[in-house]
Design a protein around this nucleic acid. Structure first.
Length: 661
DNA sequence: CTTAGGG
DNA sequence: CCCTAAG
């Protein structure tokens, strides 16, 4: 199926333009209204037949034309620009007009090839302009004003189709530059308007292919869109703001109704598979004032479609969408599924929307960005350098690099992630040192008073601070350092001031190591290696220091005295001499003890014997005490508390607790 | 910095 | 044990 552009002069079409202009905020100039020519989209089927375009296609081209005309305005006044594309007003008008016109009229299907080519060129031209505009937007740092975008029909494209290229460009660019949750507008729009019949893209529905029932083409989408838009249209700016906040989880100051509506609808569409459903439901909520039932009745039937829609592996045109789904955290999908089952509980939805999303951990960010960092960097370079034709950017990437700002000399790439549907921007770090400088660095040095050991440590540190991957063969570094110890000082030069001091201090500390004895009392004094293979073939982590029995006992006692959770206290008072045990260590150990005590105490299914051969037996008396303490402090795992603990300890727990509190 | 929890 | 988010 190909996408072509037909040209048609038509009186009624003028109305269409008028309708659109009317709603496009102050962007229109009077002369445009009298423009006698209107372009209409037609799709060329494989067999050469022409099939009328849908609303979206029309709107797309129209907006495109308008964009072209008001481009200057757009650039000059970003805040208002969005109005160039109009969702309101035009829809109903268009619907009516289309029915009047009759889509199957023969003249609509005649296309002059020359004109076609001309149109294509025209479109490409305009695309260029739009691209520039978008750049300007980004350049002037107005992230919130989405640019007027142009949508080229994203229906199935024949690979030879010229338009395909345009399409692809758009797919790549809009995602890249517009700080909106994924999905090119065309997609969202078509989702909204096609009432879930997205499958049309790859497998055109019968009515479309047949072309014999034009009414079905026009009426159905119109219908749905009509309703959907009415829903949003009824909202005041304030309500729109609320909706926006509920949708994206953040405030907006934009006053532009058009913009808000578009954003909201896009957000809703993007935020879940079930675009239609959620959008409508969402709309409902706010429309409750008036056309509640209207929306409900119409969209209720679509509520079950979405999953199917999702399944259709849509090829070219919906890459963006598919990618989006790839990224969406599963949690979110679940949530939405839940929602959609109960179409009425708007309350829940709002609550969830308002629920604070946990910031993605650095590790998460890193791991994501690590995958694409190379790609992304290349792309960024391309974007930055090529103001002209960027090469086709692989639509595969599911992360949108929104822009990069330099902060403190470092380049930070932000990308838009779909976390929690809030569309928040998370920093996208390109592989940065992962762990903070080792805390027990001094201790390490003390353990390795030999010059080589120290050199190795210093070198490692230096390398680390220079952003070298921390884990690439520590042994190599050691060898290098030992073979050329004099380079250590050179490495030092690059070390940040603070660290330099630290290192120097370490060196000094080396001279008068005070309580080396205490530390040496424990085994495991070689911390040079990343992992230490244990006798049983397992590997122990770098800084692991096996817990001795006395330590465990101290820990247990500490917990009994100060209570679990006061780790810093316990550490300060009971572990004063064990500088290498941090409060976190205590907590972890306690966690393990708890687990152990509740796991293996009761049955004793011979596991104990096997464990005894291991590193740390943890005598059962201690475990028992641990369990007792845990019970006292109501730290009992819920499932176990009922089985084992229930009878005997319950009362005690209660008494003790009341006594404590 | 400490605590709580995930990895 | 390590790491990190939150307070």
């Amino acid at each position: 199926m190909e996408t072509e552009v037909g040209v048609e002069g038509n009186d009624e079409a003028k109305h269409k333009e008028c309708g659109i202009r009317k709603s496009s905020s102050s962007l229109s100039s009077p002369k445009q209204i009298s423009d006698p020519v209107v372009y209409k989209l037609v799709r060329v089927e494989g067999d050469g037949r022409l099939v009328p375009a849908t609303d979206d296609e029309l709107m797309e081209v129209e907006s495109l034309l308008i964009d072209d005309r008001c481009g200057k305005h757009v650039v000059a006044d970003p805040g208002q620009t969005v109005g160039c594309i109009s969702n309101e007003g035009s829809s109903s008008g268009m619907a009516q007009l289309k029915r009047l016109e009759g889509w199957s009229q023969p003249e609509n299907k005649k296309v002059d090839p020359d004109k076609l080519n001309g149109r294509l060129e025209y479109i490409e031209e305009m695309l260029q302009k739009v691209k520039e505009e978008e750049r300007l937007y980004i350049a002037c740092g107005s992230p919130d004003c989405s640019s007027a975008y142009v949508i080229v029909d994203s229906q199935c494209s024949d690979p030879h189709d010229k338009l395909l290229h345009i399409d692809e460009k758009l797919q790549c660019e809009i995602p890249l530059q517009e700080p909106v949750p994924l999905l090119a507008p065309s997609l969202s729009e078509s989702h909204l308007n096609q009432s879930g019949s997205v499958g049309e893209c790859s497998h055109p529905p019968d009515e479309l292919v047949a072309g014999g029932s034009p009414s079905s083409i026009t009426t159905k989408p119109d219908f749905s869109r009509l309703k959907g838009e009415i829903c949003l249209d009824n909202l005041s700016i304030k309500e729109l703001h609320e909706t926006f906040k509920a949708t994206f989880g953040r405030e907006t100051t934009v006053k532009d109704k058009q913009w808000l509506k578009r954003r909201i609808s896009m957000g809703l569409t993007n935020s879940c598979d079930v675009s239609t459903t959620s959008f409508i439901i969402k709309g409902n909520k706010f429309v409750k004032k008036g056309n509640e039932e209207g929306c409900n009745g119409i969209y209720g039937s679509f509520a079950k479609d979405p999953p199917i829609v999702n399944q259709k592996g849509l090829p070219t045109c919906h890459v963006g969408q598919l990618d989006y789904h790839k990224v969406v955290p599963e949690r979110r999908l679940e949530n939405h599924n839940l929602d959609d089952n109960s179409g009425s509980d708007d309350h829940q939805k709002e609550q969830r929307a308002a629920k604070r999303v946990r910031k993605p951990t650095k590790r998460y960010i890193e791991e994501l960005s690590e995958v694409e960092s190379k790609e992304s960097n290349e792309r960024l370079l391309n974007l930055a350098k090529n103001s002209g034709h960027d090469g086709l950017i692989s639509p595969k990437s599911h992360v949108r690099l929104v822009r990069h700002v330099s902060s403190g000399g470092r380049t930070v790439i932000t990308r838009l992630d779909s976390l929690g549907g809030s569309g928040i921007q998370v920093p996208c770090v390109s592989r940065v040192r992962r762990s903070r400088p080792r805390k027990n660095f001094m201790a390490l040095l003390k353990f390795n008073p030999s010059s080589m050991g120290m050199a190795a440590a210093l070198v490692e540190k230096a390398l680390d601070d220079h952003g070298f991957p921390p884990d690439d063969g520590n042994e190599n570094r050691v060898l290098k350092a030992s073979s050329t110890p004099e380079h250590v000082h050179h490495q030092f030069v690059g070390v940040p001031e603070k660290d330099k001091q630290f290192s120097v201090m370490s060196v000094v500390g080396l001279g008068n190591n005070t309580d080396l004895k205490c530390m040496n009392s424990n085994e495991d004094s070689d911390d040079n290696v990343v992992t230490v293979p244990t006798s049983k073939g397992g590997i122990r982590r770098k800084h692991h220091r096996a817990w001795t029995l006395s330590e465990v006992m101290k820990l247990v006692e500490g917990v009994s005295r100060y209570g679990a959770g006061r780790w810093s206290e316990i550490k300060r008072l009971a572990f004063a001499s064990y500088s290498y045990r941090t409060s976190v260590d205590l907590k972890d150990k306690w966690r393990n003890l708890l687990k152990a005590s509740f796991a293996q105490t009761p049955p004793d299914t011979g596991m104990n014997s096997r464990k005894n051969t291991g590193a740390m037996p943890i005598p059962t008396p201690i475990l028992l005490k641990v369990r007792e303490l845990a019970e006292m402090q109501a730290q009992v795992p819920p499932n176990l508390s009922l089985t084992k603990v229930a009878g005997s300890a319950r009362k005690i727990v209660h008494e003790k607790q009341t006594g404590f509190l």
